[in-house]
Design a protein around this nucleic acid. Structure first.
Lengths: 120, 120
DNA sequence: GGCAAAAGTTAGACATGGCTAAGTTTTCTA
DNA sequence: TAGAAAACTTAGCCATGTCTAACTTTTGCC
């Protein structure tokens, strides 16, 4: 859960300047109270900074985690695309796969990617 | 959960003739009460047949699900191996990945496999 | 500036999947 | 064949992640 949340929060801050519970709820297809509860767990875990009724921001730890997650996500998606999978499916499957690939497998994905495109 | 369980139960029945809670607990690294509880859920879901204190067997539905899971598992593992990943990592990662790959991605994995080896 | 709508929170319920402690059943073996 | 060991179950606890209903705060607009 934490990984998906910090990843999305980082994206929202980048594209919108701030991350709001209502957008998180929409993106994950859950209800607002679920987001509130999960955000407070993230706060307890030291991953986000936040005051009630205010936007959500990442701590340094949160930013590091988000960056690691986004890197994995990028690699997995690029790899699936390189296999000829359509974008929508690649995104959807990557979402599930990215939390389960070891660094070893990630490296192998990157390797297999090099011949076709120079991404990272 | 159900998928992992029926998959393992099928394997145990094949290799041992029956599936016992104690072996399931060991393989999943959980305690026996957890297995008891989960098995009763599988029973409620119509996937296994079972009397208290006896071995566990799959219903027809359970066998079908197990077969589908084992196929996916086989494909994912073969694919990871074809990427040059070591067996242990391939097995471990496949365990996590197999529940998140769409049929589309699975097909792509199979496709990408053909040039190197004829498995399936 | 005040009120309605939107956003967010709190409280309380439920399902899943894990645990320990304690009891029961089955199996093994002396 | 009895008693000990192993296997299994029950009961009750906890954390996670979801929900609805009801309430509070903030925002936006007339």
């Amino acid at each position: 859960m934490a990984e998906d949340y910090v990843e999305l929060i980082a994206e929202l801050i980048e594209s919108r300047g701030e991350a709001r519970p209502v957008e998180i709820a929409e993106r994950f297809g859950v209800k607002p109270p679920t987001v509130t509860k999960n955000i407070s767990r993230l706060k307890a875990a030291g991953l986000v900074r936040r005051e009630p009724y205010r936007a959500i921001f990442l701590t340094d730890a949160g930013q590091e985690l988000a960056e690691a997650c986004r890197r994995r996500h990028r690699i997995v998606v690029a790899f699936l695309l390189s296999l000829g999978i359509d974008e929508e499916t690649a995104e959807r499957d990557a979402e599930g796969i990215e939390h389960h690939v070891s660094e070893t497998t990630l490296k192998a994905f990157e390797q297999a990617l090099v011949p076709s495109q120079s991404d990272t």
